[in-house]
Design a protein around this nucleic acid. Structure first.
Lengths: 136, 136
DNA sequence: GCTTATCATCTACATGCGCTTACGATTCCG
DNA sequence: CGGAATCGTAAGCGCATGTAGATGATAAGC
């Protein structure tokens, strides 16, 4: 297929996205976390505790939709939620050791599955780097 | 960032997907077509006329959701819909010259915007090829 | 000190979509 | 020939999500 005959990037990216979701879903279920929960744990993995509003913006989530996800993670001891002493309107979120462990376990399995998928192509590192640049 | 510190493929692909949709939306609006309409026109661009059920499967759409999209495209003279003489249960869909023209005009603009986006990376052809292989 | 704004939370509405069921017309199969 | 299946279409249910508005607590600004 000539270059001008390839599919739209959008079409290819959407198909790949669906495939990745299908790949991740069993891993997430095995660990008992939803996709949103995993996204939250991953976002909280690095850096210091952060506010709910800041987290919602970072992961492109509606803040009102985040409330029950955070409630559940907190209840399961995976995150902690504390008022910011500097501004008691704000709740600061951080991972507990258990939350960090779970996030790392899930991510390790996702990585392994990604490696299998990526093994279909050559120059995997270049592809991933380019994907990172385009999605930054 | 080391390899084991990169974001999940899923996260990067979802972000790229949102970016591509945001890029395409104004182009589609300018031409007065919805995303689904454009997907249909593109799917019908090549090959002979095809059945509605076959089209729905090809573009990953619910066949009952496709009815109004096809109704509108037909009404606007962009596709034609005719009973298959070999099996009158089936309606065969094809592009009209006008539909083909519109699809090509939209796709040309999308391609141009994609080129701008891709210009951020090196080895663009390799990236697109790899993306094609992973999403096939 | 009072007004405005922000944070988190709750509730509700609207939209899109996956899925299911049902129907009439038509075809297939035993 | 009759029953089962398919196609396209219509209608509806349920879920997910974006969005808006309201609330109490708290903070900022004049």
């Amino acid at each position: 297929m000539a270059d001008n005959e390839r599919a739209d990037l959008g079409a290819m990216v959407m198909r790949l996205g669906r495939r990745l979701v299908a790949m991740e879903q069993p891993i997430l279920e095995r660990h008992g976390v939803t996709m949103w929960a995993y996204v939250v744990l991953t976002a909280l993995r690095d850096g210091p505790a952060r506010a709910q509003a800041s987290l919602a913006a970072a992961i492109n989530a509606d803040k009102t939709r985040l409330i029950p996800v955070l409630d559940d993670l907190q209840k399961r001891g995976l995150i902690e939620r504390e008022p910011d002493p500097a501004d008691r309107r704000v709740r600061l979120l951080g991972l507990t050791p258990e939350g960090r462990r779970l996030q790392q376990a899930v991510q390790a399995e996702i990585r392994a599955a990604e490696e299998v998928m990526l093994s279909k192509i050559k120059d995997q590192a270049a592809f991933v780097r380019a994907l990172g640049e385009l999605s930054a």
